[in-house]
Simulated scan of single mutants.
Amino acid sequence: MSNKVILVVLDGLNYQVARECMGYLNGLIEQQKATLYPLQCELPSLSRPLYECILTGVPPVISGIVNNGVSRLSNQESVFSLARSQGRITAAAAYHWVSELYNRTPFEAVRDRYTEDETLNIQHGRFYHWDHYPDEALFLDAESLRLNHHPDFLLIHPMNIDDMGHKFGLNSKEYRNCARAADSYLSNYIEAWIDDGYQIIITADHGMNNDLSHGGILPEEREVPLFVIGNQFSHQPTAIKQTELCGVCCELLGLEHFKPYSSEVLAL
């Protein structure tokens, strides 16, 4: 049985846009190779608090990472810390706030952009600090990490969808086309990931509104997609919370953990 997971967090991707614009992923659903669940993000619907939520299972108002300006190391156990402490290999191609949460803070680009350190929670990292850093390059960074280090847990976190939302808004061609582009990039890799034994989770931290922002309780800000691909998912209708994604990853990785998770989403 495979115990490897790739978690893709498409920053700022609204559920309805994912449902309508991502033809490859929806094609996998039509061929019964993937399942899409609607997911409601925790509050506030902001990036750094929800990275922490997804990766630790702890809501922002409990974790203390309550806005994007809270720059400190996480004080919670994460998928990364649990995996590393149990002898697994961890990697991430992600925005620099992820490095600040789980490796070192503040982020120093010269030191941290290319991370190779077995003692850190994220042992192999490719971290960027520009919101416009091309998603295509980010997926190449991630694939390089996968092929060179064979991580048990790999986080892939591109930023361009969120960037386009902040520039043009939810109901813009720029935002929708950026989601289509991410779908196309994913189509280049998913079959290889499956062949390499990975269970794949594709989701978002939060959505987007027409004020060119997010952070509140509007449905378009809170409703995000959760695509699951792999033979260890049940692919049955069920409800799942954003706080359960960490536990789902831990279950798939075969880790000892205390995180909440949805057993109904798994076929273990």
Rank of each mutant, 00 (worst) to 15 (best):
residue 77 E to T: 14
residue 97 W to R: 10
residue 89 I to Y: 03
residue 79 V to H: 05
residue 45 S to E: 00
residue 61 V to M: 06
residue 43 L to I: 02
residue 72 R to W: 05
residue 83 A to H: 11
residue 46 L to F: 00
residue 46 L to D: 00
residue 78 S to R: 08
residue 70 V to L: 03
residue 59 P to N: 08
residue 92 A to R: 09
residue 109 A to K: 15
residue 110 V to L: 09
residue 38 P to A: 03
residue 33 K to A: 14
residue 74 S to G: 12
residue 98 V to A: 07
residue 65 I to T: 10
residue 25 L to P: 05
residue 26 N to C: 07
residue 103 N to P: 14
residue 71 S to V: 15
residue 92 A to I: 08
residue 66 V to I: 14
residue 32 Q to S: 15
residue 97 W to V: 12
residue 44 P to C: 01
residue 56 T to V: 06
residue 24 Y to Q: 10
residue 24 Y to S: 08
residue 88 R to K: 15
residue 77 E to R: 11
residue 50 L to T: 05
residue 75 N to K: 14
residue 97 W to I: 10
residue 72 R to V: 12
residue 104 R to L: 06
residue 28 L to I: 06
residue 72 R to A: 11
residue 102 Y to S: 15
residue 59 P to H: 05
residue 41 C to F: 01
residue 98 V to D: 03
residue 59 P to D: 01
residue 59 P to C: 02
residue 53 C to I: 02
residue 27 G to P: 09
residue 103 N to S: 14
residue 71 S to M: 08
residue 109 A to D: 03
residue 71 S to G: 06
residue 67 N to I: 08
residue 50 L to W: 00
residue 70 V to E: 04
residue 38 P to N: 05
residue 27 G to E: 02
residue 38 P to C: 06
residue 84 R to L: 07
residue 61 V to F: 03
residue 92 A to W: 04
